[in-house]
Amino acid sequence: METNLQTSRTPTFYDEVIRDTPGGDPNLEMCIQCGTCGGSCPSGADMDHTPRNLFAMINAGMKEDVLRSNSPWYCVSCYYCMVRCPQEIHITDIMYTLKRMAIKEGLYRESSASEAPGFSETFIHYVENYGRSFELGLATWHHLRYHPINAIRMASTMGLELLRKGRMDLTPTRIKNMPQLKKILKKAKAIGGTT
């Protein structure tokens, strides 16, 4: 694989990542490549690049390689990297930013976690239409879309058991003031960007 290494970090991908990460300065420029993040990550073994490696790639301007990486999708949001980072880099938040960018650029499809955004999208579908999440619908739709066989297994074992124990609804619940929520979300999306 040939990669064009960028010789200057400005003004591009590197800045976009910082700009699109809300919550104050994510301190990305402070990375000393110590690997505390990669060492701490519970799903690090399944990632094609450790977070540390991704940060070096971002610095080198390897936008496409970064957004094709499965790493952000394997992030479980445990925040171990973030509390342990000696430079206080907002690593988990940056992972979310990379997920959003990968969706926007469509590059997630080329990663080995190509179905991950689908799960988030299904989840959001319920939230945007009901104001609440809906576990049965979520699991069923997600699995029907990606793993039909799993869906049947889920429905026949775990799903049934959850239903039997009163731990799952058959229909979603809707909040009362759904129009209000819709207006808020519509406006938020219209403001655009990410912050």
Binding site: Q33, C34, G35, T36, C37, G38, G39, S40, C41, G44, A45, H49, T50, R52, N53
Partner: peptide, 11 residues
């Protein structure tokens, strides 16, 4: 002892 071996990029 768990760490990332940063020279090979693996945990």
């Amino acid at each position: 002892i768990q760490a990332e071996d940063t020279l090979i990029g693996k945990q």
